[in-house]
C-alpha cells in the first residue's frame, strides 16, 4: 500500500498525481475574483467612492452648507461647479461627497449590526434545533408579517426622526431575513456527515461550531448580507426622504433627492444626481456580492 506516491491507483481517470502545490481556500477565491471583470469593476467603483467620501473634508471644493441665492440651481458644469448647484446654491459635488458619508454609514451600519445579531441567532437556531429553533424562527415569522419598508417607517416613526433611530429601525428590519438565511444554511451543514463525525470524536459543541460550522456558513450569510447593503441605502434614503432620517441641512443622498424634486422640471439632470449615486452604489454592492458568491463556490 505504499506504492501510491507517484500514480494513485484509485484516481479513476482523474489526474491528481501532479505535484502542483495545493492552494488554500481563500487564495482560490481571490484568484477567481481576479478573473471576474464585472466584480472587479464594481469593486473599483466602490473603492473610488469610498475614497471620495472618506476624504471629503480635504478634497471637496466647497463648503457643503454654505449656499448663495445668486447661484441657485446652476446646471452641471457651470463655472467651476462641476456638478452644478442645488436649490440653495450649494455645490452639488461637495454635497454628494459629504452626503455619501451619511448614506454609506446608514447603509452599512444596520447591515453589520443585523449580520452580527441575526447571524448569531440563526446559527444558534440552526445548530441547536428543537425548542430554541422553534422559538427563534416563530419570532422571526412575526416580523416577516410586515413589509420591510412599512416596518422601518413604523419603527422610525414611533422612535422619532434622527439618524440613530433610523439605523436602529433598519437593523430590526434586517435581522429576520438574516436569521432565516443563517438558520437554513446552518441546518443543512449541521446534518452533514463531517459534523456527525466531529461529534463522534467527542468534540464539544463550541469546537464543532468554531471549526466545522462557522467556516462553512459564514460565506453564504456574508454574501446575502452584502446584497442588503444596497437595500439598506435605498431604505435609508427613503426614511430621509420622509423626514425620518437625517435633518436638513445635513447632506444625505435620500434627502437631497427629496429637496431637489421640485427642480425636476428645470434641472432634470441635477435632480437625479443623488438618485444616480444611490443606484450606482447599490448596483455595485449587488454585483459584487454576486461575484463573491460565485467565487466562493468550491466547485468552480
Amino acid at each position: 500500500m505504499s506504492n501510491v506516491s507517484t500514480a494513485t491507483p484509485d484516481s479513476a481517470g482523474a489526474i491528481v498525481s501532479d505535484p502542483v502545490k495545493s492552494q488554500g481556500y481563500w487564495r482560490g477565491v481571490g484568484k477567481r475574483v481576479m478573473r471576474d471583470k464585472v466584480t472587479l469593476v464594481c469593486g473599483a467603483i466602490l473603492l473610488v467612492m469610498l475614497f471620495l467620501i472618506l476624504f471629503a473634508p480635504w478634497i471637496a471644493p466647497y463648503d457643503p452648507l454654505q449656499g448663495s441665492m445668486a447661484r441657485r440651481l446652476k446646471p452641471v458644469g457651470w463655472q467651476g461647479y462641476l456638478l452644478g448647484t442645488d436649490e440653495l446654491g450649494r455645490d452639488m459635488l461637495t454635497r454628494l461627497m459629504y452626503g455619501g458619508r451619511f448614506s454609506w454609514f446608514v447603509g452599512i451600519t444596520p447591515v453589520v449590526c443585523a449580520f452580527t445579531i441575526g447571524g448569531t441567532l440563526g446559527v444558534l437556531a440552526g445548530f441547536v434545533g428543537g425548542k430554541i429553533n422553534m422559538l427563534i424562527m416563530r419570532a422571526t415569522d412575526v416580523f416577516y408579517a410586515f413589509p420591510s419598508v412599512l416596518l422601518a417607517v413604523a419603527i422610525s416613526g414611533a422612535l422619532g426622526p434622527g439618524i440613530f433611530n433610523a439605523i436602529l429601525s433598519m437593523t430590526l428590519v434586517f435581522i429576520p431575513p438574516l436569521i432565516r438565511v443563517s438558520e437554513s444554511v446552518t441546518t443543512s451543514v449541521r446534518n452533514l456527515d463531517y459534523v456527525e463525525s466531529a461529534r463522534a470524536t467527542g468534540a464539544n459543541s463550541f469546537t464543532i461550531v468554531r471549526v466545522h460550522v462557522l467556516p462553512n456558513v459564514l460565506g453564504p450569510i456574508f454574501v446575502y448580507a452584502t446584497t442588503l447593503v444596497g437595500v439598506s441605502m435605498i431604505l435609508a434614503s427613503g426614511l430621509s426622504f420622509l423626514g425620518l432620517g437625517v435633518k436638513p441641512p445635513t447632506p444625505e443622498w435620500g434627502m437631497m433627492l427629496n429637496t431637489l424634486r421640485t427642480a425636476i422640471y428645470s434641472q432634470p439632470l441635477l435632480a437625479t444626481l443623488p438618485g444616480i449615486c444611490i443606484f450606482v452604489t447599490s448596483l455595485c454592492f449587488n454585483l459584487l456580492s454576486d461575484g463573491l458568491r460565485n467565487a466562493m463556490d468550491v466547485r468552480n
Binding site: S22, L192, D193, Y194, A198, V211, P215, N216
Partner: peptide, 9 residues
C-alpha cells in the same frame, strides 16, 4: 465527500 469538512485540509 460529505464526511470531510471542505474548508479543512
Amino acid at each position: 465527500y460529505a464526511s470531510l469538512n471542505p474548508r479543512l485540509s
